[in-house]
Structures are given as C-alpha cells and as structure tokens.
Nucleic acid binder design. Sequence first.
DNA 1: AGAAATTTGTCCGTATGTATC
DNA 2: AGATACATACGGACAAATTTC
Lengths: 136, 136
Amino acid sequence: MPTPHYGQPRYRVIADDLRKRIESGAIPPGTLLPAESVLAAEFRASRGTIRQAIAILRETRLVATEHGRGTFVYPDSSSSGRYVGSESGVRKRHVAADPELAALFAVKPGTTLVEEESVTRQNGTVDAVVKVYRLP
Amino acid sequence: MPTPHYGQPRYRVIADDLRKRIESGAIPPGTLLPAESVLAAEFRASRGTIRQAIAILRETRLVATEHGRGTFVYPDSSSSGRYVGSESGVRKRHVAADPELAALFAVKPGTTLVEEESVTRQNGTVDAVVKVYRLP
DNA sequence: AGAAATTTGTCCGTATGTATC
DNA sequence: AGATACATACGGACAAATTTC
C-alpha cells in the first residue's frame, strides 16, 4: 500500500479525533488513553503515526505521557480546552480557584480564574514556568 | 546490532552537537544546515533520528525548517530574560511537581520544585497572582 | 521478592508523497 | 524535467519504566 496523505496527514486526523473524544468527555480528564498499540489497531495505523498524533496533544498540553504508565488526559481539558497562543508558548485557560487563590482574590473557592502559563528556556532546557492568575 | 542508548539518547546528543556548532558560529545564522541525509551519514544515524534532533532545535526556536528547502539557523535571538521584579512579599516554598510541571521540566512527577509566589495589587485589591516554578 | 506482562521510549531501514531548486 | 530535500507512513527490534501476578 502506498502512503498517500491527501489533504491532511493521517496523524493530524487522528489527533483531531482524539481531541474530540477528550473534549466531548468520552475520555474523561484524569483517565488514561488507550495504549498506543491499541490505538494503532483501532485506527489501522502504525504506532509511529499514533505517537505523532499524541505528540500534538502533548504540545497543546491536552495530555501528559509517562514512561511505562501511559498517556493521561489533563484535568480541565473537557469543556475549556482552548489554545490561544499560536506559537508564543503562552497558554491561557480557565481554572477553579483553590482555597489559597480564593482567599487572595477574596472570592469563593471554585470561582473561575484565568490562568496564563508561559515557559522560559535557557539553551533549550526549561528554566522556569510562570503562571499568572487573574479574575476573568 | 542492538539499540543501546545508555545515558542520553542519540538524538539528544546529536541535537547538543548541532546546537554547539550553531552557538559557536560554525554554522552561521541565516545559513542552511546540512541536509538530513548528509547529517544522517555524518552521525551514522538514521534520518528519523536526525529529524528528532532537529525537532528539538526547532522547539527551542534555534532553527526553522522549510519543506523542500532545508533547515535554517535563526538570525540570533539571544534575547535576555525580561524580569520585572515586583516589589513586595515574594513567598517561596517547595512543592511537588504535578504531571504537567514534571513534563515541562522533564523530571518525574513528585520531584521537588521551588515555587515563588508574588501578588500584585491595585488600590489594595489583588490584581494578579504570579507563581514561578523552578528546579531547586 | 521476583518474574512476567504491559506500555512508552529509542532506533533502524525502507518506501513513497510533496515542495523547491 | 530532473535532482534535491523535507514530510509522511510502515514495520520491526530492543530498551526502560511501571504495573501486575
């Protein structure tokens, strides 16, 4: 079989499919994605292609992968998985205020806050992660 | 031949090597990197491994790749870190890395991180809470 | 405690598609 | 048109971390 990738490449199509499953709640936050080998069988794609798809979800911070464990869906990602910054490395999302933040902002715990996350690097390695919380 | 990758994986070693060539000026800004096939021959690695290495440099914004053309060295971005030292009350403490922070810092979840928290106010009311995470 | 199974990580070789020169 | 270079995709093999038995 040849390798035609008309329009979108397969790994992007697969990534979109998985993203929809996550945002729709079909794969709830905090749970594991099916193993790469399982996804490969389901999509009839090679493991490498599946890994490319998951890499996209990882870049957008929709999931996190751990060696030997699997790929987890991040908490939050179901209803407000928006990625604003295109390439700037700044990611904006809505989070619920924990008791500490709630006290600082003088609101009830659980109130929605805006979190802006940016990453600074030095020689390619992550130097610091900065999170800024504000009221919407 | 097996596939032993003691210590660092090959693609990271190759990425470091290329990064040094760029930072030393051996590959001047604006010029092309050798083609992937050439690098593959030089490092005796597969093209896939070379592509993994270049992907790292791309994430760091050290190079940019264009389809059919090649991989260019960025015209120097040595932007220094911009720091706005707020004024007051910087609170420092140790926290355990959640999966997301762990992934960013490339450490195991649970690893100790230093968290610096500062609060900016306007007329006494909290405007924003800034949290900076670093490795100890 | 230890072995086996599972899962992700790395690496290779090959083939083909697509964009640029 | 032809050559060159990057992009996508496959399949296989082994390494390393985790979980399960």
